[in-house]
Every structure is written in structure tokens, then in C-alpha cells.
Amino acid sequence: MPVLCSSCSEKRAVLKRPKTGHSLCKACFFWAFEEEVHRTIVAAKLFRPGETVGIAASGGKDSTVLAHVMKLLNERHGYGLELMLISVDEGITGYRDDSLETVKRNQQQYELPLKIVSYEELYGWTMDAIVKQVGLKNNCTFCGVFRRQALDRGAIMLKVDKICTGHNADDVAETVLMNILRGDIARLRRCTAISTASEGDGVVPRCKPLKYAYEKEIVLYAYFKKLDYFSTECIYSPNAYRGYARTFLKDLESIRPSSIMDIIHSGENLSVREGVKMPVQGTCSRCGYISSQALCKSCVLLEGLNRGLPKLGIGKHHRLHEKILSQQPLTEQEERKLKSVDF
């Protein structure tokens, strides 16, 4: 027995919204989804007319929906933004090269300029090569640190004012849970922020227009709109611990769909002790990128890779930074410690 749309009461409902419990038809769902993103953008004052905005595009569902909705809203509501796609090529055969094809198709479908920045070009290392040296256990650290900087560099090359990323409500909720499980209070407070202010030279402000959009709705939006997206998990991602948080979140959602929004709300209102020590921001003395240490994380990781000491950037070896900068040799013991890699 077909259920009628609770909004227009005319057409057949195609989904039950997890956020509100409403049953909506396709047209009413599209409208509701898009206008909610619009309201998020307006309420948080994410953009100003005339700005150039880079959309971080991975070819996956979230960034594909983001690019589609941003283009649509920019036209519908006259934001006056100039939109561009920025993609990072980590150099992962069989994963990234396929998803980049999706991004290239998106570029044509949406008629937006695209810039691809590759790890190889920026750092001289592809992820495939990094994995060969560091193994599967810590490779996500490299990828994550390098990606953040790569996006910033791509943004600067394109001269964009802001970057928007496809993080959705489920991602934010999952990150809240992860930070609690890891006891990371500083990140716990930051992770629900919808946008980051400019932290300094070389770092472009970022925002998450899909922060309040459920993953379920994003997937259904892409499905009903027949958007072209790529869906394979990164072949190097072992991330077991995040897997626990994700499973828990999905289980919570199945008991009470509003849980995702409830967790974000909790994160936004966390009343934890004031005065948590935050690192003082400075710049990397090698590359000039923002860094709380003498060397930024990417430069340390890169130094480790180039010297064949992959553990240099993993764990805490701050006191070695000075030595590296002044090109003093490391002791045998230090070398031994940094060489061992667990596979």
C-alpha cells in the first residue's frame, strides 16, 4: 500500500526522513534537502558574495552531492560565488585513479574548473610508494597529514577564498565519538565547528555545508538524482578503531534515528573544563606551513620517508626536530628506534 507524501499529499512517498520521520515524495525530498543545506549556509554565514569557493572533490557520494547542491543553490539563491573543484591525487592505484575519473566527469557535468594536486608532485612520494616503506599500520597518518596540506596548496594555486568539504552529519557524530574514545578533548571541542577561521598564511578557511545532512539522505539524494559517484573504500584503510565507532553509530541510529543529531548537539554543548592547553600556532621553519612545532608534521613525515626512518613522524619525537633542522646526525640508538616498522 503506497504511503502518500506528508508534504504535498499528492505523490507517493519514496523515503522516510531519519531526521524528522516525515514521509516525502521525490520532489518534496529534493526541495527539503536542498533548502536545509541553504539554511545551514545562511545561518552560519558560510560565504560572502563574490568569494571564490573550492569544493574538495573526491568522487565519493558526499563530495559529489556537495558539488551538485552548491552549484544549484548558488544559482537558485544568487550567492554570487565562483565555484571550483579541487581534488587530491594520493597516488593509490585502483582506488584514486578510478575515483578521479568520476571527478573529471563531474567537472564536465557541472561545468566547474578542476584542479588536481598530487602527492607525487608535492612531496615526491605516492601513497603506493609510502605504503611500501611504512606498511599498512601507520599509512593513514601520512595520507591524512599530506592531504590537509595538499588541499591548502591546491586552494592557493587556484586562489580560492574558502574550501568546503563533504563532511556530513554522520561523519561529525562519528568524530565526536572517536574523540571521546580517544580522550582528545581539544579536538572534541573543535570537531563540531561548522567552519574554521583562517589560521594563518597558507591555510585556507574550511567549512562543512552538509554538517547537518544525514548520510542516508545524501545517499538517497544521489540515488534518486542519479548522480555519478564512486563507491569503493580506500584499499589501504585498516582503521579498525574508527570501525568500532562507525558500527556503534549505525546501531544507535537504528534504535533512534535522531541519535546522530543528538550526538552533534552534545558535542556542540559539551561542558568540559575550561583552560585545556592548546598548542601555540607558529609556522614550519622549513616550508612555512602552519605548525605548532619547529617543523610541521608533513615535513617531519617527509624527512622520515626520505631518510628511511618512517617512524620519525609517528609518536612524539619533537626533541629531534632541532637536530634534523641543523642536519646533525642521529645517534645509532635513535636511528634504530625510528626504523622498526610493524607490519
Binding site: C140, H167, N168, D184, S237
Partner: peptide
């Protein structure tokens, strides 16, 4: 979505 701007090996 891959989210790896974080490390948590030690603890």
C-alpha cells in the same frame, strides 16, 4: 569517508 587527520596509535 576517510578521516585521518588524527592519530591514535599509542594509547
Amino acid at each position: 569517508m576517510c578521516q585521518v587527520e588524527e592519530e591514535y596509535h599509542e594509547q
